[in-house]
């Protein structure tokens, strides 16, 4: 009951944030929001539906995706530091995005662009798995090394490509919702939905898997299979996010720690809560990024780092991260 109440209040916060974000911005709306529903003409209507809506909805959707991905990643790699950024997924998705744009195979924000990001994210995660000597420190170091290689390759492609839409390395590394529009959202949303479904299906097995590989095997959950499934879920969640808005730091790392503090370690429960918490944090960050220093916009990834990293340190100091190291 307490958890249901918490769930509903978080949901209410999202609705309020959604409305507030549609109303707040550089342009002061002359018309009440309610009267703009169904309207498509005029500065107020286009500002709300064409400019703010995709950003706010995108922040909610991508925040939820990154939060869920964080839970899955930490669960499957049984490591509290296994964030999509650290285990090669994010840089894989970045390289996948840039590769098709730089070679002219697809435009920024196209479906091919998203598919390539998903594919590369998955391959990068598999590569890290394949090369890592163990599941502990060696795994993280391998992840960091692979990420560095992939990011460097992406940087080289950016430097030698004159193709429009290839963006800059800082766009890809720090993330920004500014380029998000309704068309891009329509393309990435189905991928992320699939990622949610897949993550939800894998979540109960992750609880069993958390007791160790042999233990998991004895209880009827094949480790190899669940890892593959989790990586597919992660690629479906991270790939589209990166291809549309670049890498957003710390969210995937921070959200699961907050969620475990609130509702305990169960992956299934953590999943729905981390979707809400992830959405709230990213919506707040986006609101701050576009309103704090008007008319300048602060890259989103910088804000999430500035908020996320200290929060993470505090959480870890509280010894409430709820992980026990066995490596």
């Amino acid at each position: 009951m307490k958890k249901l109440a918490l769930y509903l209040s978080l949901l209410a916060v999202i609705v309020l944030l959604f409305i507030a974000s549609l109303r707040i911005g550089i342009i002061h709306l002359q018309t009440p929001l309610w009267d703009l529903i169904g309207k498509h003409d005029g500065i107020d209507a286009t500002t709300v539906w064409d400019v703010r809506f995709p950003r706010v909805f995108g922040a909610a959707l991508l925040g939820a995706a990154l939060g869920v991905a964080g839970v899955i990643a930490q669960g499957i790699f049984r490591n509290p530091l296994a964030e999509p950024t650290l285990i090669g997924l994010t840089s894989g998705a970045t390289l996948g995005s840039i590769a098709v744009i730089a070679t002219g195979a697809a435009a920024f924000g196209s479906r091919t662009n998203v598919e390539s990001a998903v594919l590369f994210a998955g391959l990068a995660a598999l590569l890290v798995q394949l090369l890592a000597p163990n599941k502990g420190l060696g795994f993280l170091i391998t992840g960091i090394a692979i990420s560095a290689i992939l990011t460097a390759l992406a940087g080289v492609m950016i430097s030698i490509s004159a193709k429009p839409g290839v963006q800059s390395l800082s766009f890809w590394n720090f993330g920004s919702l500014a380029m998000l529009n309704n068309q891009t959202l329509k393309i990435i949303a189905p991928f992320i939905e699939l990622g949610f479904i897949s993550a939800f299906m894998v979540s109960r097995k992750l609880d069993i898997y958390s007791l160790g590989e042999n233990s998991s095997h004895y209880m009827g959950v094949k480790p190899k299979q669940i890892r593959l499934w989790a990586i597919i879920s992660l690629a479906l969640l991270i790939g589209p996010a990166v291809s549309a808005v670049g890498a957003i730091a710390f969210l995937g790392l921070l959200v699961p720690h907050i969620v475990r503090l609130l509702v305990g370690p169960s992956h299934r429960r953590a999943l729905s809560f981390s979707a809400l918490i992830g959405a709230i944090i990213l919506m707040l960050a986006d609101l701050a990024s576009r309103t704090l220093f008007q008319p300048h916009e602060i890259p989103l990834g910088l804000l999430t780092s500035l908020i996320g990293a200290p929060a993470l340190i505090i959480l870890l100091r509280l010894r409430s991260a709820q992980w026990v190291s066995h490596d």
Partner: peptide, 13 residues
């Protein structure tokens, strides 16, 4: 999120 997506599609211009 499914509901939001449907809402979003309906609202998008």
């Amino acid at each position: 999120s499914v509901k939001l997506l449907i809402l979003g599609t309906a609202l998008s211009i």
